[in-house]
Amino acid sequence: MKSRGGIYPYLLTLPSLLLIFAVTLYPSLYSIYMSLTRSKHGVTEFVGLDNFRRILNTTDFYQSLQATLIFTAFYVLFTITIAYAIALMLNRGLRLTGFYMTIIFLPWVLSEITTGVVWRWMFYPKEGIIQNLIAPLINNIALITRPWGAMIIVIAATVWRSISFAMLLLLAGLQTIPTEITEAAQIDGASGFGVFRYITWPLMLPTVVVTAVFILIQGINGVGMILSITEGGPGRATEVLGIMMYRQAVQYYNFGYAAAIAVLLLIINAILAAFYLRALRQESALAA
């Protein structure tokens, strides 16, 4: 039985809440207010939902939404699939597990701006080392100059950076499955695939969902990698909503407009967060 602790818990949570309030919550509320304003020639006026109306009436928004969906869908799919495969392999207790974990985790501790630069170099038209390697296979097209090619590159780079994290979550989940169950199944004659299909997978599903949603939220909000590799190009092929917001704020100084995109992103995030919390609850219910 936990104690109620009187005033203590409130005092202990206070510093965190103050920090979050000052640096995250208040600015977010302020940016919601900003999304209802427009600034021209130094004069800021309240325009209601006009910014939203303008955004939702452009084809650019839907193009960006589409790019966001394509990007996140493939990014999550590949990250989870590869991470799951690696986690299954590492779960066998290989002697080199520590070594593998170290290497796989390296991209995660490096900044998006430095690694993005390297990915760009690798796909430079004519000079890029990977570009030249694959050029004969793709009709000598410079991959980064094609809308689909640029999308493939940014997805690959983002997957490269996130596998480690997803792998860790999934591995931790796998390790909670008692080996007795799978061993018993194998003794009963279940094939390797059968064990996976009927025992591991159902037990792992909640963890997979939690991981996927977590990765998804990171993917939607993170723009650093795309920004440093393609800046949203060619055309608008990789201009996800995050990049669109970045351009409005950082390139055009339309802060109200950018804030409105942020609010739309916030709504998308809130919906995902609700899913996340539900999945989390299911997972802990299963674990208990």
């Binding site: 650019d60 094609r146 809308p147 190009g233 060619p234 055309g235 608008r236 351009r247 390139q251 055009y252």
Partner: peptide
Amino acid sequence: SPYYNETMDALSAKVQELML
């Protein structure tokens, strides 16, 4: 133009699309 950057940037994205 009051929206010079916005217009030129949108134009550049569209031109790239038209060229490809």
